[in-house]
Design a protein around this nucleic acid. Structure first.
Lengths: 186, 186
DNA sequence: ACCTGAACACCGTTCAAGT
DNA sequence: ACCTGAACACCGTTCAAGT
């Protein structure tokens, strides 16, 4: 039997996916977890803390998916990020939205993910696929593009299907091509 | 004297800036506008429609700011977008967040802004500052980067001040540099 | 055409109390 | 240590009624 805390998180995650943070009512969470509507307060400070726990769990799962590979490929990491965001819009917005201090475990998970990503950028630079320079800053460029492309696509601001249509995957590939060309040209 | 509808939008905008969409309660909006808490329903279908009206107004204002210049500079447009987003986080999230059908005037304002931007991209291409190719797709790359950089910065995911720190403005400048180099190299 | 007061169903949160 | 039922203040929305 799952612990109450885990059941609460699982129930909240299902509600989040269905209708966003507004649909995550503690009453519905409690009902789905088989407890009263204020039992969550024994496990989380408030509703925001419950949502922060979901975000931390998503961040850790993404890290775990990549932990299998000894040195994960940069393109694979970005592809995974993009496809996860498009598959789970509400988790994407929650996880990479604003957290005011909230849970320290969230900040730690984010820091680890960033470090892994920066390492993959440095590896790609060594292979000559990316231009030289501070890998953290180049990594920020790649993360910002992937994040923005997914966010705009989810909001429908990237253009409808047809002529000028560009998927987030296309934009990431475009940026890689420009960066590689820039690296060779130097 | 402002029309009631305008006073409602102005009051809602002030509340949005202070505390996000959750702080925009129709009761508070009505109080600030000097009407009852359900008078807004005479002007907007519901709370979401009121928020959509704010988003449309912001989009139009951004367009009006650029309308002064006959052929607005691409860098200036992106700089304006970034600084607006950083100055008004709640408006940024609302305006470029998800709208489900909502108001048609919103989609129209967004379409106009995109067209103006694509034109500026094409002009920069003619000047040789950007590589050749579909201007709409290259524009999507630039918009996605600027949008993602602002969003990550607002959420605190771009790194704290210090070593690897990169502001959205820095990332936009980096991308321009890579693209120019890529254009020259070809 | 625009506005109001009362009412309804819902929500986050607190609290005294139970095991 | 964990959970419950009742209660409080708040919210979006509807409705009958007013000018």
């Amino acid at each position: 039997m799952m612990e109450t805390r885990e059941r609460l998180i699982a129930a909240a995650l299902a509600l989040l996916d269905r209708g966003g943070p507004a649909a995550v009512t503690l009453r519905e969470v409690g009902r789905a977890a088989g407890v009263s509507h204020n039992a969550p307060y024994r496990h989380f400070a408030d509703k925001d803390a419950l949502l922060a726990a979901i975000a931390a769990q998503e961040l850790k799962r993404q890290g775990a998916n990549l932990a299998g590979d000894r040195s994960p490929d940069l393109r694979a990491m970005l592809k995974g990020y993009v496809s996860w965001g498009r598959r789970h819009p509400e988790r994407f917005h929650l996880t990479f939205g604003r957290w005011d201090r909230e849970a320290p475990e969230l900040a730690e998970a984010a820091e680890q993910a960033k470090a892994r990503f920066t390492e993959a950028v440095a590896a790609a630079q060594r292979r000559g696929e990316l231009p030289a320079g501070d890998p953290e800053r180049l990594g920020a460029l790649l993360r910002a593009l992937a994040h923005g492309a997914v966010d705009l696509a989810l909001a429908g601001h990237l253009g409808a299907a047809g002529k000028g249509r560009a998927d987030p995957e296309d934009l990431v590939a475009d940026l890689f091509a420009y960066l590689r060309k820039s690296a060779e040209g130097g």
